[in-house]
Design a protein around this nucleic acid. Structure first.
Lengths: 110, 110
DNA sequence: CTCAGTAACATAGTCTATCTATGTAAGTCG
DNA sequence: CGACTTACATAGATAGACTATGTTACTGAG
């Protein structure tokens, strides 16, 4: 299923706080797994997102080798990335609560 | 604040289950109030959304008069609209839970 | 009675972010 | 060597909310 617009960067940053260094494919797999298979992160969404995060200094990257000796770019979250993640989670909670209020306001209430 | 893409139709349908007939402005105000002021529904988002819902038969509309005698289009939710609302709420919950799982998976967990 | 102000509806075009489709480099293995 | 796969990458399509603008029609001041 599609990732809700505006949440992908947050999910990537969060994933990078769980495992110190991951390359793109690993990040995508981790999101799919921790979401219990609800989300599929497409490459056309993943790599542009990682570029955005790189440019903003929220993640850092270096080229390395996978277990089976393929080249891959390994990402880790920066201090600025952690701060941004906190902000985004806070903001997401605010919005989620607001939606819940609308969805659960009883009929007849002003 | 901005309405998360993909949620506006659901919020409008839900609002119309609370008050039987409302015109556009009233719907927008109701969403702002029940969200505790978190959301502001802009006219450029509201009216296209109502058109979408009309075309799909999820709401019905008729022209009428406001309390102070201005013309306004009054909307009510249809049976198909109630079914769609149920689907969208169910889907939203699924996504929200998936995001929560990603955000709350402890470090070190596979 | 006219004219400014405003409520309500409406649409065109912009922007943002994800997706689809495609392409490339480089390693493995038969 | 050649088919297959992993991993990265980008161009273009698409969706949905936003900004900006415009129109209609009622009210109220002067």
């Amino acid at each position: 299923m599609a990732i809700p617009p505006g949440t992908l960067d947050m999910l990537i940053l969060k994933t990078l706080t769980r495992v110190r260094e991951q390359h793109g494919f690993e990040i995508a797999e981790a999101i799919e797994q921790t979401s219990a298979g609800v989300f599929a992160v497409e490459e056309g969404s993943l790599y542009p997102a990682l570029q955005r995060l790189l440019v903003q200094g929220l993640v850092a990257a270096e080229w390395g080798r996978t277990n089976d000796n393929r080249r891959a770019r390994y990402y880790r979250i920066t201090a600025a990335g952690r701060r941004r993640l906190e902000d985004e989670v806070r903001e997401y909670d605010r919005v989620a609560k607001a939606i819940a209020r609308v969805l659960h306001t009883a009929p007849g209430v002003a």
